[in-house]
Amino acid sequence: MVDHDAVTHVASLARVDLDEDEIEQFTAQFDDILSYFETLDSVPETEDDAELENVFRPDEVSEGLSQEEALRNAPETEDGYFKGPTVS
């Protein structure tokens, strides 16, 4: 059973603020959706037999984005760096 607190908790884990209407709506919808997902309980344990192999390449220096290009979309920069909010 998903309640108001569960939705608020998971929203804080995901770092997404929600307004009260969204919390209410999601609470009702998540219950339906998660109950549907629970039918996965009936799935037999299945070994994944996909043929996977690692892909390696030599670690060589190559052309990348310039600092200016990398910063072009940032809302705030300072001295050639991204500028973010305070951490604590």
Partner: peptide, 29 residues
């Protein structure tokens, strides 16, 4: 505010309802 407050506010503003729904359900799962 701090990093977390700012992050969560930008994401509330920038994402639509379906995207929020999927991020939250994925985080839950």
């Amino acid at each position: 505010g701090n990093w977390n407050d700012s992050f969560a506010a930008v994401r509330e503003e920038g994402f639509g309802e379906e995207v929020k729904r999927r991020i939250l359900l994925g985080t839950y799962a």
